[in-house]
Every structure is written in C-alpha cells, then in structure tokens.
Simulated scan of single mutants.
Amino acid sequence: MKQKRKKICFISSSGGHLEQIRQLKEVSNRYECFYVVTRTKATEAMKQRKYIVSDLVRTNIVVLIIRMLKMFMEQLRIFLKERPDVIITTGAGVAIPMCIIGKIFRKKIIYIESFARINTPNKTGLLIYKFADLFIIQWEELNKYYPKSIYGGWIY
C-alpha cells in the first residue's frame, strides 16, 4: 500500500515572518505544501502555490472580532479544501485561525517564534504556545517565557 505524502500548510503574515517560513526549503522540498499569506506585492509575486487571505486589523475590539471571524471562515474553507497534515507558522495574527482550525481537526501545529523576538515573546506566540505540538524558539533567552519550547537556533 502506497503511503500518502504529508501535506504542509505554511501560514504567516508578510515581511519577516514570511521570509523566515521561506527559509524552510528542506521541508518544502520534501513534502507537498502550500502557503497562506496576506496580500502584498511580494506575496502576489510568489511562485509557490498560495492562498491570499485577509489580515488582522487592530483598530478597535469590534473591528478586531469581525476581522477574526472573516479570517476564520476564509481559512476554514482553505483547510477543508487542502486538508493539511501539519501547519507551520512563524506568526503573526493571521496564523491564529488556521492553528485553531488545525487543532480542532487534530492536525500537528508547529510554531516558530520570530527571529526578531530576542528577549520578549509576541502575543501570537503566547497564545499558540498553549496548544502547539512543537514550539521552537530561535533565541535561548525566550526559554523563560516558553519553558516547554525547543531551542532550534536561527533558521537563517
């Protein structure tokens, strides 16, 4: 019987978060994967298979809740279409719905705390740390915030 190749969802906001995800070439070459990213000129130009989704806007609590619900529905449709086995993210807020959806469907969640976070955690990391299957930090200084994390060193 032929074993199914694992499918990976890479999700991140644009900029540095996306650049860190794109450093995982060994993973993307080894498995079937797709990207879920926010819209920018750089993400629209990406050649990899991708979905462009709404981003989180933090103007006020009402807008935040409405945007989070919209993001959740967009990402639920993508999740049900693609059925990833693993979700890998470096954040930021755009990754929260996909990670929650993945956890509901008992998929593996891997969070890599941003390289830019040397001494303090980010809010997305603090939330996803509570349920991630694997939580990787790039700076040992963050161990005090994430005691069950794995120090993986830099991904650059």
Rank of each mutant, 00 (worst) to 15 (best):
K2E: 12
R5I: 09
K7E: 04
I8R: 00
C9Y: 00
F10Q: 05
S12W: 03
S12T: 05
G16L: 06
H17A: 04
H17T: 04
H17D: 07
L24Q: 02
L24G: 04
K25E: 11
E26I: 07
V27A: 01
S28F: 06
V37E: 02
T38E: 06
T40D: 02
T40F: 06
T40M: 06
T43P: 04
R49W: 08
K50E: 06
K50H: 15
D55H: 12
V63K: 15
I65P: 02
M68T: 08
K70N: 13
F72Q: 07
Q75L: 12
L76K: 05
L76Y: 12
I78T: 01
F79V: 03
F79P: 06
K81R: 15
R83A: 11
R83G: 05
P84S: 08
G91F: 00
G93T: 02
G93K: 00
V94E: 03
C99N: 00
C99Y: 02
I100G: 01
K103C: 03
K108N: 01
I109Q: 01
I109E: 02
E113P: 08
A116S: 14
A116F: 07
A116T: 12
R117M: 15
I118R: 14
T120C: 13
K123V: 15
G125N: 04
L126H: 10
Y129R: 11
K130N: 15
A132M: 07
F135L: 08
E141R: 15
P147K: 10
G153H: 00
